[in-house]
Amino acid sequence: MSGARISALATLRSQIERIETAEVVHQHDRVALGHSEADTALKGGLARAAIHEVFCEGRQGAAATGFVMGLAGRVSARRPLLWVRQDFSEIETGALSMSGLSELGLDPRRVVMVRAADVESALRTSADALACDALGAVVLELWGETRQFDLVASRKLTLAAQSSGVTGLMLRMAAQPLPSTAETRWMLRAAHSPPGSAWSAWGAPRFDAELLRNRHGPCGRWIMEWNCDECQFSEPSTYPQPVAAAPAHRQDSAVFRQRRAG
């Protein structure tokens, strides 16, 4: 690569940086999740007025739903929540149950559900809803890979979220991460209950949450437990099992740079 080219690239990069930082200057509104390591990595908590993506494999759909519901409960601060889902995901992982929701300590009264027939109408509805500042959060649940949810669509949602201050949460089941304008991207798996007293113990929901991308901080992987009474995440109470996790304090720089560029 010639010198001129590199300098041109550098100029462009700095321009983009300027544009992006200009946009996110007002984005200091963060909500602590309750899990201290995750909160440190997120610089204090999950940013409001941004888009966050949660990916999972198809069979982990329920766990990811629980995690997204937890995030939505944290950021929405007693404001209504609009949950947009595609018809197909209800067949695959079942309908969101309000009894289950209230068992997690969240309030089913604040949930308005939109049953979109296809991805286009789901995307359009979410973009419309994200512009409505009376909402606390908008969740868009999509099943499988979709062509429609591309960089342009993602950018539209981000802009809508930034202008209104509403947080957008994308629940992408059975999908692979693609380049997007999301603030954070998570990969979710269900975590085991703490060992011991087999055939009996059954604790609070546990998530094996991997932060794949974080625009303003390091990534990491943690076991997070949802505390149904206090409505926040916490460190696993007793967790002697080893976790194959990337240490939060020492990020994998190669991976990190690649993600940033994407």
């Binding site: 759909g61 329920a62 739903t65 629980g66 519901m69 209800e90 992982t93 079942g94 309908a95 969101l96 149950s97 309000m98 009894s99 289950g100 929701l101 209230s102 068992e103 997690l104 300590g105 309030d107 089913p108 009264r109 604040r110 308005v112 059954w202 604790g203 609070a204 929901p205 149904c228 009474d229």
Partner: peptide, 27 residues
């Protein structure tokens, strides 16, 4: 039914119990 739903009385969950009902229910 928006107004009715905002004031609905849901069964109270038992404190310090893990969830007794699933989050996703098959039709």
């Amino acid at each position: 039914h928006l107004a009715a739903a905002m004031q609905a009385e849901w069964p109270v969950r038992t404190e310090s119990e893990p969830p007794l009902r699933p989050l996703r229910l098959f039709d």
